[in-house]
Simulated scan of single mutants.
Amino acid sequence: MNKINRVAIVGGTHGNEFTGAYLIKKFEQIPALIQRPSFETLTLLGNPLAFAAGKRYIDKDLNRCFFIENLLDCTLSSYEDIRAKAIYQILGQTSNSQVDLIIDLHSTTANMGLSIILGSHHPLLLQLAAYLSSINPEVKVCYTQPEKGSNFLRSLCELGLVIEVGPVAQGVLNAEWFQKTEELIYSVLNYLQRYNQGSIPQTNNTLTYYQYVGAIDYPRNEHGEIQAMIHPQLQFQDYEPLNPGEPIFLTLDGKAIAYEGTSTVYPVFINEAAYYEKGIAMCLTEKQLYSLQNL
């Protein structure tokens, strides 16, 4: 595989996720923290107007603005569409400063702990994820969907990953998660330095990850109003097994609603505040083992 020459760390893609935004501020003040001998590390505040306003976005979710056809569409004129085009020019494949790997920093109100979210099975990403989970038992690895046609910022680069931490309230700077995210970033950069030197750390032969299989919305009435909340037994149980027949919602008048699936799943992003508007009460994953022996 090719050497890593340039890495980008992006924070504040969502303006009210302060962990990543303030880490970018710190790295801009002390750039030596993220520089390594064999590659350059760039920093980028993803959505500066939303960050200044303490809002997730100004007009629309920036992290849903990176379909290539939208990036090339000059008629799209929302603030986030314009910002996405600017980021594409900075980080994308047409840029003189094209990056080899993107780390997009996010925080969540759900109990996701330290999550690494991947969108491809690129060998380097899988080996990196296996290494991070081996040195830190708090690290969980999620795999969403193939990056072909993705509208996420991380899809601007073949080697794109998200660090998602929480629970952290929106618009709040939490010291614990700030420090844990910072240490995880250093672990990523140190791994890439060793990768460039040809001395990749040994890890387990298998990677445990959680494969996205779908999402569930809250029960709603004909007006779209929520009629039930996350059941207390499920709240904060991200990455824990959910079996058919177990309660997932509690109606406003106190009746439990059971999970009607036919197999055990592992919910993530349970009761994520930002997903209410997207019609998502939780995402469902299946627990998988991936062999690294043939990489």
Rank of each mutant, 00 (worst) to 15 (best):
I68V: 14
T41L: 04
L173D: 07
Q227T: 15
Q233F: 00
T19C: 07
I185W: 01
N221S: 10
L91P: 03
P244A: 06
L114T: 09
H121T: 12
H14F: 09
I226F: 12
Y195P: 09
N70R: 13
G54T: 03
K255Y: 02
K3V: 13
Q170M: 07
E260A: 15
L91H: 02
E272F: 02
R36C: 07
K3P: 07
R56N: 11
Q235A: 11
P241E: 01
T43M: 09
V162T: 15
N204V: 10
L105D: 10
H14D: 11
I4K: 01
G214R: 12
W177G: 05
A169P: 08
L242T: 04
K278R: 13
V168M: 02
L132E: 03
T108C: 14
Y191W: 09
N271A: 11
F39C: 08
S115N: 13
L295W: 06
I230C: 04
K278Q: 14
A110N: 02
V7Q: 03
I185P: 02
K26M: 09
P244D: 03
L42F: 11
G160A: 09
I185H: 02
V141D: 06
L125C: 08
S150V: 06
C65V: 10
L105T: 12
Y209F: 15
L192D: 01
Q293D: 14
P146D: 11
P241K: 02
Q35M: 12
E138V: 02
S107A: 08
K60D: 06
Q193E: 15
S199L: 11
V268S: 12
